[in-house]
């Protein structure tokens, strides 16, 4: 178990971080190169003002008609995404690892709060799963990959939650937790989890087109 832990938290973690950062940069650069190569006109229409105006509306809950029409989904998706990003970044035990390895540290969440946030992510994932299985329009467009990416995202939180509470076999769960984290990081640039990377760009482009050319709101 020790060897397994050393592998997932050592070389595999390095690989995961390299794939995450390297892959993210690669994907964004490739996209921009493709724009330059085949659709250079897109740059002509980009506007900081309208890009930010659009992004701002869409990252605020209920600031768009679309969000307002789906109040339950809106609350859940915002809570899910916020906790998804904040929990691993500000978890005390994660920050301690950074401190041990590189002597860097930052502000941390109280463990009890982080625990609730992990539960929010898990419940959010269950909601999305149920939505996929029951809502006809979502079910119609669901493919296997949708379940896979949901599982990839949920796994670190489920295992993290179990590890924190020391339920089941702690050493095994801990190893699985680190492995799940590695997989999620590495998967972001190479699956549709890449919406994390690309959505600011697609949003900005549409915001620019609507603002600059069409003089209309895109929210």
């Amino acid at each position: 178990m020790h060897t397994f832990y050393n592998v997932v938290s050592g070389p595999l973690a390095w690989i995961a971080f390299i794939l995450f950062f390297g892959g993210s940069i690669y994907r964004i650069v490739r996209m921009l190169m493709l724009v330059a190569e085949k659709e250079k006109f897109i740059f002509t229409y980009m506007s900081w003002r309208y890009s930010l105006r659009s992004i701002l509306h869409w990252i605020i809950p209920f600031a768009t008609v679309s969000w307002r029409r789906q109040p339950v989904l809106t609350v859940i998706t915002f809570a899910f995404h916020a906790c998804l990003i904040a929990t691993p970044l500000f978890l005390l035990s994660h920050v301690l690892l950074w401190d041990e390895a590189f002597a860097i540290s930052w502000w941390t969440l109280p463990d009890a709060v982080a625990d609730v946030m992990a539960i929010i992510v898990i419940l959010g994932a269950i909601y999305f799963l149920a939505r996929r299985l029951t809502q006809p329009d979502v079910k119609f467009i669901t493919s296997a990959s949708d379940f896979v990416i949901l599982a990839i995202v949920a796994a670190p939180f489920v295992t993290g939650f179990l590890a924190y509470h020391q339920w089941l076999s702690y050493p095994l769960v801990m190893c699985l937790h680190v492995l799940a984290g590695d997989i999620m990081l590495a998967a972001i640039p190479f699956t549709r989890l890449s919406h994390m990377l690309f959505s600011p760009f697609t949003r900005a482009y549409m915001g620019s087109e609507f603002g600059k050319v069409r003089h209309a709101r895109d929210w």
Binding site: M31, S66, Q70, L73, Q135, D137, V138, I141, T142, S143, D146, R192, S194, H195, F198, S199, F201, T202
Partner: peptide
Amino acid sequence: TYVETCIHCGL
């Protein structure tokens, strides 16, 4: 990008 970014949410 559109095809790879769509998260199949149905909104």
